[in-house]
Amino acid sequence: MAFIDLTSLGKSFGPTPVVRDFDLALHQGEFVSLLGPSGCGKTTVLRMVAGFETPDSGDIRIEGQSLLRQRASQRQIGMVFQSYALFPNMTVADNVAFGLRVAKLAPAQIDKRVDEMLDMVGLAAMKGRYPYQLSGGQQQRVALARAIAPRPRVLLLDEPLSALDAKIRVALRTEIRTIQRQLGITTLFVTHDQEEALSMSDRIVIMNAGRAEQIGTPEEIYNRPTTRFVAGFIGTLNVIEGQLGTEGGTVLTCAGGRLALPGTFGASPGETLSVAVRPQSLRPAPIDGDGLRGTVRHVEFLGAFTRLHVSCGPNTLLVDCFARDLAANLSVGSQIALTVPPDEVLRLSA
């Protein structure tokens, strides 16, 4: 049995459905990210779990027990907010102690737990400071310590890194994950940043228009997106449409040439298909060989690699290559052939 079960959750604000028929099961100690564009319903799901929104339909269960009749304050769910939400009138230590005082723990126990938590987030020396005397990263560490101090059953993270600058964001995401693993606390993390989701999560839920579009490990989501939306949302992607043929193996005949596909590709000959190819899967090849042919329209130097914009019929394909793979005389207007290893062609269902 899953530790947390969200079944058929639905929520509308006025006539607008925000979450539709949402199912998710989290195992104990798992770190799951809800990833999607703004307005896809990920924060609403989180707020329903926290008890700040009431679902219109469905159920939320922890260890088989429904939470719907429990108020937010009774659910034993810790939450970290995007805007930190530290209590401005309290010191760092008082902020961390807040939940412990509400739970009426003995003062000695509170002091011990506060010290442990502040040690864990590396802010032991700042316990007497007020939130306004801390940097954004420090405030978010305090918020994390405060959320986990009462030892909640579940930790909810609502875009906790979005307000921080890039360097701190990277450092803090490693820190959050380390602490989460150390405590083994089941965590639901909301983000719109795919890099954060990919680097931190055990599993990712890609949300679109209130629904879970795909649920899987970061590798599955990145390497085997099942829909055009997921493929387009995670990383950069070229979508190519064509007709399936079987001359000399399974091939996709499309504008600009032919693409070799693995096996039967789960489709019948003559069927029109949409496939997706990552820019790094497209490789320059000899112009007289097999593959797609096109004209280089733009060359972007991006440091570690170079991105080519290649027009193939009506499509413009993005191609990422290392400098060593590029012909020395390649420039805007050059003719180029491109190949893709068959197993790196992704089939899109919708």
């Binding site: 926290a50 008890g51 700040f52 108020r71 937010a72 304050s73 009774q74 659910r75 034993q76 769910i77 810790g78 939450m79 907010f81 805007s83 939400a85 530290l86 209590f87 807040f98 939940g99 509400v102 739970a103 918020a143 405060r146 959320a147 009462p150 909810l156």
Partner: peptide
């Protein structure tokens, strides 16, 4: 946010 933060801590 402050209210929700306090509620999530059991208040």
């Amino acid at each position: 946010t402050l209210t929700e933060a306090a509620q999530s801590l059991g208040a």
